[in-house]
Amino acid sequence: MKRIFQSLALGSCLALSVGCSVFGKSDSFTFVPDFPPDFKYELTASYVPAKGQTCTVPGGKGTQLGFNKVYMEYEATSEIPLYRTVSGCPLALNRVEVEVMGIFGPGRGNRSYDDGAIAVRSELSDRNKGTFNAAGESEFSGECQWFFRTVGPKRYLIKILYCKKIDAQGNVAKSRPFTAYTLDQLPGKTVKLKITLAHEEEPYMGDTWVKVPDGWKRCMGKGFEDQHAFCYGNHKDFSTFRMVDERICTIYPGCTENKDETP
Rank of each mutant, 00 (worst) to 15 (best):
F39Q: 10
L43R: 03
V48N: 06
Y47L: 04
K51G: 08
T30S: 10
K51I: 12
V57Y: 03
T30K: 09
T30G: 02
F29P: 13
G62N: 13
T44P: 04
L65S: 03
P37A: 14
G52I: 05
P37L: 01
S46K: 15
D34W: 00
L43V: 05
P33N: 01
S46P: 04
V57L: 12
P36I: 02
V57K: 08
L43A: 01
L43N: 06
K40Q: 14
P37T: 11
G62K: 13
K51W: 10
F29Q: 12
K61N: 11
F35A: 07
P49A: 07
P37I: 05
D38G: 02
S28C: 10
Y47P: 12
D34Y: 02
F29S: 04
Y47C: 00
P36H: 01
G59T: 05
T56N: 03
C55G: 00
K51L: 15
L65D: 05
G66F: 09
F29I: 09
Y41P: 11
L65M: 11
K51A: 15
A45T: 10
T56I: 07
C55K: 00
P58R: 14
A50G: 04
E42H: 06
D38Q: 12
Q53R: 05
P37Y: 05
V32G: 07
V32Q: 14
S28R: 15
S28L: 14
T44E: 08
G59N: 07
V32C: 08
L43H: 02
L65T: 03
P37H: 15
V57N: 04
Q64M: 11
K61Y: 02
A45P: 14
S28H: 09
P58L: 12
P33Y: 07
Y41F: 15
L65F: 15
T56D: 00
S28V: 01
Y47A: 00
F29N: 07
S28Q: 15
D38T: 12
G59F: 02
S46N: 10
V32L: 13
T54H: 12
E42W: 01
T30Q: 15
T54F: 06
Q53N: 07
G66P: 01
F31L: 13
S46W: 11
T56Y: 04
L65N: 03
D38W: 03
G52S: 06
G62W: 09
F39P: 12
F35K: 01
Q64H: 14
P37F: 01
G60C: 13
A45G: 10
Y41V: 01
T63I: 04
P37C: 00
F31V: 04
G66T: 05
Q53M: 00
G60H: 12
F31R: 05
F39E: 06
F29L: 07
T63F: 03
V57E: 06
F39L: 11
T54N: 15
A50K: 04
G60N: 14
G52Q: 10
